[in-house]
Design a protein around this nucleic acid. Structure first.
Lengths: 220, 220
DNA sequence: TAATATTTTTAGATTTGTCTAAATTATATT
DNA sequence: AATATAATTTAGACAAATCTAAAAATATTA
C-alpha cells in the first residue's frame, strides 16, 4: 500500500499524538498539523477507508496495526534522513527537521534500505530518537528524564524530547548535545531548576522545563 | 522564485527538447511528458505568467534566460542525486533515474550545496552528463560519438546519450561503462556496425545505433 | 486555392486537499 | 434536567493539475 504525502503526514502526526494520549481527537490533530478541524475530518474518512484507523464520528480515533506500521515506515525514513544530514552533510542537528520532512516522502524501499546500510544501520537519530528497522521494530534504551536523576550521579544525554528550534538553541548554549556527560549538583525547590555540571564547562542552572525534556542514561 | 514539482518537470522537459530543436511544440512536449496536449497548454500559460518562457498561441515556445536558469537548477539537483545514488549507495547506474526524479524536487539550496561538497563537487554524473554548478555553469568536455572515431585509435567512454533502461542493459552486456577503453577495429559498410575491442574483453560487434549514442574522448 | 488533415487551444468536468460557515453532537454548568 | 459551551462534522466552495471533447488556427495537398 502506498500513500500520498498528505496521508503520510497525517499518519505520522496521529502516531505521535496517540503515543501520548492513547485516543486522539480532531482538534488536537488540527493544532498539531496547523490545519483546520474540518480538514482533519476529511482525511480521517480517507484513512478509515484505507483501513488504517479505528474511527467513529465524534468519538476520537487511533491507528490500528496497519496504520502504526505505516507510521513507523515514515518515522524510519525521517530519522534515517536526519542522520544522513547531520553525519554526512554536517548540518547542525537543529536545522535538519524541515528538510527531512520533505525527504521522508520519497518512496523507494530500496533507497531506504541502501541508505540505512550506507549509514551503518544507526539505532538512534541525531536527536537521540530511536530509528525503527525495516520491520518496524524500535530499539529500546534504558533512559529517564534528567529531572529524575539523584544528585552527584553522572549521566549521559541520550535524547531530547522537545525538538523545537528554541529548545535546541538553548541546549547548544549550554553545550549539551547527545553523549554529553552531566552531573546534577543541586535541586532548587523554589522552581524545580537544577544546578548541573556539563563536562568541560563551569556549573550552570537549567530550568525544570529543560530538565524534563533531556533524557539520559547512566554510563555503563 | 520557487516552483511546484509539476512546474519543474515541465521546465526540465522543455529545456531538454529545446536543446535539440530550438523551438518546442505542444504535441512533442505532451509526448515527452506522457500527458495530453491540453494539459501542456494549461501549464504553458502558467509558466508564461511566471515569465519563464516566450510563448504565443499556436506558434511554439522556448524558455527565456530565467527559464533556462530554472531548468539548470533542476538538472543540477537531478544529476547530483544520481551521482550520490551510484557512488555512495552503490545503485546500478541504470536504476537511479526514477529515484532522482523524486529527489530533484526537494527544494533546499543549502542541502544541494552541502551534497555537492560531500560528493567532491563532481563535474559529471554516472551517465557522463555534465553537472551544472551552483551558478548554472556547465562543464564542457571534448567528446565525440564512437561512430566517428577512426580505426585503431583507443578512446575512453565519457557519456551515453540514450539513457533508456534498454540501452543501459545493452552496454552492461558489452561491459561498457564510463571510463572504459575501447578500440575500433573494423567498420562494416553494410549496416554501419563496428567491431570493437573493449578492455579485457574479446572482440565484439556493436550496431551503428549503439555506437552513435556512446560518446568518447581520446586518452590524454 | 479550396479541401483536408494536423496541431493547438478552449470549455467544461474531475480529483485531491484544503477552506469557511453552518449544523450537529457531546460535554459542562447551573 | 435545561441550558450553555465546546468539539466535531457536513455542506458547499476553491485552487491546482489534470482530463475529454469540441472548436479554432495552422499546415498540407490535390
Amino acid at each position: 500500500m502506498s500513500f500520498t504525502t498528505s496521508e503520510e503526514n497525517y499518519i505520522k502526526s496521529i502516531y505521535h499524538l496517540q503515543q501520548e494520549t492513547g485516543l486522539v481527537n480532531t482538534n488536537s490533530l488540527a493544532a498539531e498539523m496547523q490545519t483546520r478541524p474540518a480538514s482533519v475530518t476529511d482525511m480521517l474518512k480517507k484513512l478509515k477507508g484505507k483501513k488504517l484507523l479505528q474511527y467513529e464520528r465524534y468519538k476520537g480515533f487511533k491507528l490500528n496495526e496497519a496504520g502504526k506500521r505505516a507510521a513507523l515506515d515514515v518515522v524510519r525514513k525521517h530519522r534515517l534522513w536526519e542522520f544522513f544530514l547531520v553525519e554526512k552533510l554536517k548540518f547542525d542537528w537543529d536545522k535538519v527537521h524541515s528538510i527531512a520532512e520533505d525527504l521522508e516522502h520519497i518512496s523507494s524501499e530500496e533507497l531506504i534500505q541502501r541508505l540505512d546500510n550506507f549509514l551503518g544501520n544507526p539505532a538512534f537519530d541525531p536527536h537521540g530518537d530511536p530509528i525503527p528497522d525495516k520491520h518496524g521494530k524500535i530499539p529500546v534504551i534504558n533512559q529517564q528524564s534528567l529531572s529524575n536523576i539523584p544528585l552527584h550521579k553522572t549521566v549521559i544525554v541520550s535524547s531530547v524530547s522537545n525538538q523545537t528550534v528554541q529548545m535546541l538553541e538553548m541546549l547548544k548554549h549550554y553545550h549539551i548535545t547527545l553523549g554529553t556527560s552531566i552531573t546534577v549538583l543541586r535541586h532548587f525547590e523554589f522552581d524545580g531548576s537544577l544546578e548541573i555540571k556539563v563536562l568541560k564547562q563551569s556549573n550552570c542552572i537549567i530550568s525544570e522545563q529543560v530538565a524534563k525534556n533531556v533524557f539520559v542514561h547512566y554510563a555503563q
